[in-house]
Design a protein around this nucleic acid. Structure first.
Lengths: 233, 233
DNA sequence: TGTACATCAGTGAACGCGCGTTCACTGATGTAC
DNA sequence: TGTACATCAGTGAACGCGCGTTCACTGATGTAC
C-alpha cells in the first residue's frame, strides 16, 4: 500500500492506516465503472459512509488519490509478474519470459481500468509525480534480467547493425542495465516490451474485434515469437 | 466530414453543413485540452457563440458528436497514410511500409488526443457504433496490401509453424484479405501492426521517458526491423 | 409572380444533477507532567 | 495515577462551478399552389 506505516502503535494510527486503505480500495472499485477521469472524491466518501470533506484528512486532493492508485497498480502488477517469474528455474530464460508475458496479460484482463491507468492515455490535467517512476519499472526490470542472463550465457541472436544515432538514444535505458549489453539486444528488448504492452492494450481496447476469434491463442503465439526475437526460444 | 451532403442547394442547407463542420472542428479543438471524457456540448456551443440547446439541432446527443469525432479521426489518419503510401512505387514494398509507419506516427504526434480517441482506452460509458468500423480499417488495409504483394511476389520469409488453434483464431481477419495468404504471414502482419500502434502509443503516453533520448531514431529502427520480420527489407 | 403554410434554426429559462474544496465546529484520542 | 492541554478525525454547511437535456417560443427560410 501507499503508506508503509511500520507497526502503527496507537488506536488512532491503526484506524488511520485502515481507513486510508479503505479509501484507496473504494477508489479503485470506482475506477472500473467510470474510469480515471470520472474518479470522484465525493462518490468515494459516500460509499464509505463519510462526509466528503473527511476524505481530505487522508488525501489533500483528488490528484493525490489518483497518484496512490497509480502506484498501487504498478506495484500490484509488479508483484504478480515477479511472483510468476520467480517460480521458474533461473536457467529457463524462455520460461521466465513466458511467465512475465502471461502474468502481465492475466493481470490486465482482470483489471482493465487499472491497466488503462498505467499504460493508457494520460488523464487530462493530471501530471504523474516522481513517486510513480520506481514502481513503474518493476516489469521491465524482470525483462532486463532475462536479457542480461541471455547475453552472459552467450545466447543472444546474431546482432543487426545499430545506427550511431540510435546508440546515443539508448543512453537512458543503459543506466538501468547493470552490465554492458549490446545495443542490438537492448533494441530487441524494447521491441519485445512494446509488443507485449501494445498487444495487451489493443486487446483491451477492442481492436481485435473482427480480427481474432481467440485472443488467448494469438497471445501465446506472440510471446513465443518474441522469445525467438531475443534469442531465448 | 461526417455528412456527405452532396451539393447542398438551399442557403439553409449550406448553412447547416457549414455549422455542422464548425461544431465538429470546435469539438476537436476541445479534445486537446480536456480529452474525450471532458468533451462538453455546452463548451462547444459557448465557443461558437450559440446557446447550448442549439447544438441539439445538429447532434442529438453528446455521444453522437463523439462518434463524429472518432470517424473523422480514423478518416484523417487513413487519408494521410494512403497519401503517403500511394506516393511510393508499387514494387517498393519496403518503402510503402516505411511510408505507412512514418505517416501514422507523424499524424499521431500532431494530434495526440485524436490518437487517444481511436487507439487509446475506451471512453467510459461510451459505446462506439457500427459506423466507425469501416474507417477504422483504412490503415490496416494498406498493410494487408503490402503483405499480399509480398506473398504473390514470393518475398515472404520462411514461415514458422502455426498451431491449429491459432489458425482457427485467424478466421475473422482472413475475411479482410482478398487472396489466400499463409497463416504465418498474417501473424507477422498482426505483430507488425501491433508493434506500430504500440510503439506510437507508448511514446505518446510518455513511457519512453528515462528510456530513450531520441524517439525519432528509435522509431526509424523499429520500422526497419519490422520490415525484416515481414520479409520486405 | 405572389401568397399561405410548413419547416427549421436558434433562444432562453428551467430541471436536476454532480463536482472539488474550504471552513468553523465538536468531540474523541493521545501526551506530558 | 490523574489531570490539563494538544492533536486529530469527522461533521455539516457553504461557495462557486459545470454539465446534459427538455421545452415552449420566435422569427426567418423554403415550398406548393
Amino acid at each position: 500500500m501507499v503508506e508503509p506505516t511500520s507497526a502503527p502503535r496507537t488506536a488512532r494510527a491503526r484506524a488511520r492506516a485502515e481507513l486510508t486503505r479503505e479509501i484507496v480500495d473504494t477508489a479503485r472499485a470506482h475506477l472500473s465503472s467510470d474510469g480515471a477521469a470520472g474518479l470522484s472524491l465525493r462518490a468515494v466518501a459516500r460509499d464509505l459512509g463519510m462526509v466528503s470533506s473527511a476524505v481530505y484528512r487522508y488525501f489533500p486532493s483528488r490528484d493525490e488519490l489518483l497518484t496512490a492508485l497509480i502506484i498501487d497498480a504498478y506495484n500490484s502488477l509488479g508483484e504478480e509478474a515477479e511472483r510468476a517469474e520467480q517460480a521458474v528455474k533461473r536457467s529457463d530464460l524462455h520460461g521466465r519470459w513466458l511467465a512475465i508475458g502471461n502474468s502481465t496479460r492475466t493481470w490486465a484482463l482482470v483489471r482493465p481500468h487499472e491497466w488503462a491507468l498505467i499504460y493508457g492515455s494520460p488523464v487530462p490535467g493530471y501530471q504523474a509525480p516522481q513517486d510513480t517512476i520506481v514502481p513503474a519499472t518493476r516489469v521491465s526490470a524482470l525483462l532486463i534480467g532475462i536479457l542480461v542472463d541471455a547475453h552472459t550465457s552467450g545466447l543472444s541472436p546474431a546482432p543487426l547493425p545499430v545506427p550511431r544515432v540510435v546508440h546515443t538514444s539508448l543512453t537512458p535505458v543503459r543506466q538501468a542495465i547493470p552490465v554492458a549489453v549490446p545495443d542490438d539486444l537492448i533494441i530487441r528488448g524494447l521491441m519485445v516490451w512494446s509488443q507485449l504492452i501494445g498487444t495487451i492494450s489493443l486487446e483491451l481496447n477492442g481492436q481485435f474485434h473482427n480480427v481474432l476469434a481467440d485472443t488467448d491463442a494469438y497471445f501465446e503465439t506472440v510471446i513465443q515469437r518474441c522469445s525467438i526475437d531475443i534469442g531465448i526460444a
